[in-house]
Write a protein that binds this DNA or RNA. Structure first.
Lengths: 357, 357
DNA sequence: AGGTGCGATTTACGCACGTAAAAGTAATGC
DNA sequence: GCATTACTTTTACGTGCGTAAATCGCACCT
């Protein structure tokens, strides 16, 4: 009562902190159940009461307890996202589009990163189950993932895989790129504009890597060319793609090989290493379209327009994948026990012709 | 009782799902409080009972309800992390080191990304408060952040800023790079090995950008050179750094300027754009150390070793920053109401001399 | 004035678990 | 064989809020 500042003016100091709805109710003279209803749907409360509540909330610092609110609701309003690796702009873009789509759908996303470790991936899945997220979006690690964990998630809650699809989990919703189309697309382009490409692969840490290899071979044979794949046997099967691309091509260039070939890299990060190897050997990929060295990638990594020379590649439609994955998951969340029509959504890759090929 | 498979063998099908500890207790014949104690500290339960519980848990599918457990504990075991932007490998590396350090300290981290939007940043802070995380680690957006939200967080729970420090929040713990040292370091190097550098800046979206500008000017004057800053007036103050670097230098190169200068870019992504501009104009940065074009950056972006030419830069000690930020936060969490000795922890940048300068 | 109907309040219970106190049981020592 | 000790179980209450049912207050209408 001795606070002389509590007129109509804005309160100066920190507002009084209120911990529970109970206190809030006695602080602004509205019953607790009414407050509860107000927070869930202000329109279910008489407008004069809404005004009183708003005014009261303005005078104090109160944040509802998330745990307590969600424990009694059927839905937590959260979706869990697992990605395998953070230090890759491809995944960050994917994650960004997922977060935005989820936000628009009214969900809070909890992201966990596997950091290339199946144990961490498993822990993340447990966290999601124990927090009873409404659904989970998972980009698996690769063939080292612990699929039992994915199965448990899938059995327990709405579940959609994205980006990379394990052959060991049929019958699960998936959203990703049609690598047969995308890789076929750029192989066809390379063949049309110049010589048939060599495929610079990577260690098969990833199902997509294999899918692209297979797609490359198929398209080459369809066009009547002999496929040639290099780079599958690397020193270490990790995520250091650029050094891998560099090492493989440096090896060949040093022996005078491949200096006038077309080279299709399994992804853009490998291609960046490839460009570096070319520069090291004084080569200028893309200068002579036909008959000269050309280098192309896959994914449309954000840096592609700024490499030297700018990298020709196929873009994955990251935004569409993110949006579709969220849309599918939200649909499953709302449907609950509908007949399980599995849905595989694949997006086409679109060609980005730049300077390098 | 008609399940013929329940011998000693591994159960084949999906295990029976158990939702609550109550059911669990009656399923394996151990009282619920005992189970509760088991989950918190198995050593507080007799070993023969532990064995019975373990055996029982092996036969069913049970995950404790996170909300219910945390609601009654003083601590949630979670720390909230806010980063301003995802599509930047600098932040992903920082985040990675934070996640690992937090994991080692026994905390679960909840990451929220501001996506360059102060409103989203504010929402993330609210989420943290409502989930009563044990502490928050925040890398602010820049001068467009809503600092009132940060103040509220800081007043409510253990709070540490990292990476970027608003001048408007004195008295708050901070962990980051000593930009005076790091920028001074590379300015000194550039001057020693060649001509004094021009500073290619960026729109001041970020406090670090300003700090580096100031540090550049100071070091130049200390060495008796005239500072020259370009690029502060950009088309749009967003996170498209590479195009910015390209545009500014393309502008100058087109008029025959700067082609034989040393150019220090405010960060590596701007430098990547700068390298591209150089290549476009047939320039080869770093070839002639003294008297020729040189380009250097700041941060040691993961791609620096793979640019053409490889980029000379100063590395921020991302791992140390992440670890220190977590360590400081954990200390504040454990200390609670200790005397508030503010702590500003700054790490030195270390020179990475490569080819471009 | 009395009846009607809507919104608000009161009351009471539930969620899944933590936790403290009291009472029970088993293992150990002499 | 009995007391001591250690662990368990039982019982009961608390956490902050959702939610349903019953009660209450108020403006409106005839």
């Amino acid at each position: 009562m001795d606070d002389t500042e509590n007129g109509a003016g804005k309160p100066r100091g920190p507002k009084p902190k209120i911990a529970t709805m109970e206190e809030l109710s006695s602080a602004i003279g509205v019953s607790r159940p009414t407050l509860s209803r107000y927070f869930q749907d202000p329109s279910s409360v008489r407008s004069s009461t809404v005004a009183r509540i708003r005014e009261g909330l303005d005078r104090v610092e109160y944040v509802p307890n998330f745990f307590a609110t969600r424990m009694n609701r059927k839905s937590t309003g959260m979706i869990g996202v697992i990605i395998p690796y953070l230090n890759d702009l491809f995944f960050t873009r994917l994650l960004e589009s997922i977060e935005i789509a989820a936000m628009e759908a009214g969900f809070t996303v909890i992201t966990q990163c596997s950091h290339s470790d199946p144990a961490i991936e498993a822990r993340a899945a447990e966290t999601f189950m124990s927090m009873s997220v409404d659904g989970a979006l998972v980009a698996p690690l690769g063939n080292q993932s612990d699929f039992e964990i994915h199965e448990r998630l899938n059995a327990r809650l709405p579940f959609v895989l994205f980006d990379s699809r394990p052959s060991t989990m049929p019958g699960v919703d998936f959203v990703g790129t049609d690598h047969t189309q995308s890789t076929g697309n750029i192989v066809e382009y390379l063949c049309r504009v110049g010589d048939p490409p060599v495929f610079l692969a990577m260690p098969r840490v990833n199902f997509n890597a294999v899918e692209r290899e297979v797609a490359y071979v198929a398209k080459m044979e369809e066009l009547g060319h002999d496929p040639l794949i290099v780079g599958t046997e690397a020193v270490r099967p990790d995520w250091h793609f650029e050094p891998h691309g560099f090492a493989i091509l440096d090896h060949f260039f040093s022996r005078g090989q491949f200096a006038d070939r077309s080279i299709l890299c399994v992804n853009d990060r490998v291609a960046i290493g490839a460009l570096q190897a070319a520069a090291t050997h004084g080569l200028d990929p893309g200068r002579a379209r036909r008959g000269g060295l050309r280098i192309a990638g896959h994914d449309d990594y954000p840096l592609c327009p700024h490499t030297i020379p700018a990298l020709t590649t196929v873009a994955q439609d990251v935004e569409a994948i993110g949006r579709a994955a969220v849309a599918r998951l939200v649909k499953k969340i709302r449907a609950e026990n509908k007949p399980d029509d599995q849905l595989v959504t694949l997006f086409d890759g679109v060609l980005k012709v730049r300077e390098s090929a």
